[in-house]
Design a binder for these strands. Sequence first.
DNA 1: TATTGTTATACTCTATAACTATA
DNA 2: TATAGTTATAGAGTATAACAATA
Lengths: 157, 157
Amino acid sequence: MTDALSQIEAFFPYRFAVAAERFSRNLMDVYGKSYGLSREEWRLLFLLSQADEIASNELVQRTTLDKVQLSRAAQKLVDKGLITREISPLDRRVKVYKSTQKGRDLFQEIKPQVDARALEILGAMDETSRQSLQDGMNSLLKALNAPERLTEDPGAA
Amino acid sequence: MTDALSQIEAFFPYRFAVAAERFSRNLMDVYGKSYGLSREEWRLLFLLSQADEIASNELVQRTTLDKVQLSRAAQKLVDKGLITREISPLDRRVKVYKSTQKGRDLFQEIKPQVDARALEILGAMDETSRQSLQDGMNSLLKALNAPERLTEDPGAA
DNA sequence: TATTGTTATACTCTATAACTATA
DNA sequence: TATAGTTATAGAGTATAACAATA
């Protein structure tokens, strides 16, 4: 009567969504609860901490952030003194972002903790499964990026 | 200068989150845009369409819905005439949910379309990768459900 | 007194469109 | 006129707490 429940539990898209949400929340615990960063802020800080500078238009093209999300996440990081935002000399409509020393320091502090949390979970898997997951994921990402699948959201590599 | 971008693109948690979100959105397109169901409503309809009846407390224990989400999603499905909600004769605090014929019909109409969309994506992967993804995912779910990892959210598997 | 489901509230996210400044 | 980034607005989703009914 009741193991209709195991029916949905076996449904791949459901399992996938559940796994992704739990995994993501585990990491958000680290940079979110402890350091007050949103997922978008964390991603942006991540990017800028290892680049000299990145222009706004490039960020929009190559990340999952749209221009509104980018603008707002960047504003918060600027307010916190973690990044700077300047007008591009090449095109005065464009902004160029750089991390500050404070931003890089914070990133260096958080990143190992995020890695540790991820490894704590992935480390509970055996090596073969971990490799399978990586390979499968890479293949899935390719499939998702295949041109036919771009319902909307083009160029979001 | 700029392939800090490929740094985050290579970061497993980032790839995983991006893949999950895109995959999920693809399916939401089907039951959401075309049929006006939220993800929670869809999951609930899914469950009830293949069970005789399920009690509220069981749903909360075994799905990712908490009691508030369940109450609200169920209310919407009741309003749409897709499920019924009755007081349990065993414990008058508990509700028992059943799908209506209309609910089951709608589910039978939507489910093949969701499957088709999922297969459209997964079908672009080769068989080996698909198998790897499944195995890896199963292993990851086990790792996420391991007792040490239950930061909060116990018994939600 | 504890538990179940509902309702209320505030907060965050998302999507869209309007606006400004530059090109 | 088109593009880039910002601001405004409304809607959906989430988290928490208060509440009423039942145990």
